[in-house]
Simulated assay, not measured.
Amino acid sequence: MRELQAMLGVSRGVVSGLITAGFVSPLRGPRNEYRFTFQDVVLLRTALQLRAARIPPRKIVMALSRLRKALPDELPLTGIRVSAVGSDVAVRTGPSQWDAVTGQLLLDFEVAEIKGDVVFLDTTPAQENLANQAQEWYDLGEQLRTSDVNGAERAYRKAIVLSPKPFYAAYVDLGALLCELEARCEDALHVFDEALTHFPQDAVLHFNRAIAFEELGRFGDAEQSYKRCLELDPSYADAHHNLAILLEKRGDPQGLVRHLNAYRRLTT
């Protein structure tokens, strides 16, 4: 329940009210605690958004009941977008768009007719639409990183693939996420290397790359990456600190003193 509240940004009372109203039926764990599935999270988030859009409660329940049957058990790679269109609910899954209550497939034009009224379903330019989708996947990765590492990784990677231009934050956070897992440091290194092809002068990427090298025991490469980071940003205190410790391990007492002093000057 606490993790779900944090993901949705609402109080326990709001979540409990949505459960009581029948929007979701979570399972119970061994200590009688609520256990929410990916489907539950999508449905609850959708219920909040539709309620804020003033969709009638009865129509929300009907829409979510049909949506529940269509949702996969795990995070979908195609993405799911649910939006209020007038008093109706439209669902997009990958290239398909359909009415959440009737199940009727909606034609993928900029405008379509629903119940005789012309409503705008998607007038966003393609590039802007991709950027919005990439941002949504990135936000999902941020929400999942403490509770579902695999889901967070997939969300970050989807954000990188969808983004019309290199997605700096997604690269940084994906690499950091992988580097927290000892067995994935090599994968993290590949992420940072790819990011550096787009942002070669970024000190943070060189710093994170150095950490990945250290975790892999490639101390010479780590030293060079820390030095490159400091060439780009001499005031990067953490890089001075880490390089000082690394140089001590490598038998360079002068380097240790030089970078430790620099670290102290920058942090006092």
Rank of each mutant, 00 (worst) to 15 (best):
M1L: 05
M1S: 12
E3M: 10
M7V: 02
L8V: 11
L8Q: 12
G13D: 12
V14D: 02
V14M: 07
V15I: 08
V15T: 01
S16F: 10
G22E: 05
S25R: 10
R31Q: 09
E33I: 07
Y34I: 05
Y34R: 13
R35H: 08
A47S: 13
Q49K: 08
I55H: 06
P56W: 04
I60M: 07
R66F: 03
A70S: 11
L75Q: 01
L75P: 03
I80L: 09
S83N: 09
D88L: 15
V89P: 04
D99H: 08
T102C: 06
G103I: 06
L105I: 12
D108I: 14
F109I: 09
E110G: 11
E110P: 01
E113M: 12
K115Q: 11
L121S: 08
T124I: 15
N129M: 14
N132P: 03
A134I: 06
L140F: 01
E142S: 04
Q143W: 01
L144R: 10
R145C: 05
D148P: 05
V149Y: 03
E153I: 10
R157Q: 14
V161A: 14
V161Y: 05
P164E: 04
Y168K: 11
V172R: 00
G175R: 01
A176D: 07
L177H: 07
L177V: 08
E180S: 05
L181K: 07
R184T: 00
R184F: 03
C185D: 02
H190R: 13
D193E: 11
D193P: 14
H198K: 03
D202I: 07
R209P: 11
F213E: 07
R218P: 03
F219K: 12
G220P: 01
E223Y: 06
S225H: 02
L232M: 07
D238Q: 12
A239K: 02
H240Q: 05
H241G: 00
L243F: 02
I245V: 12
L247Q: 06
K249H: 13
L256D: 01
L266E: 01
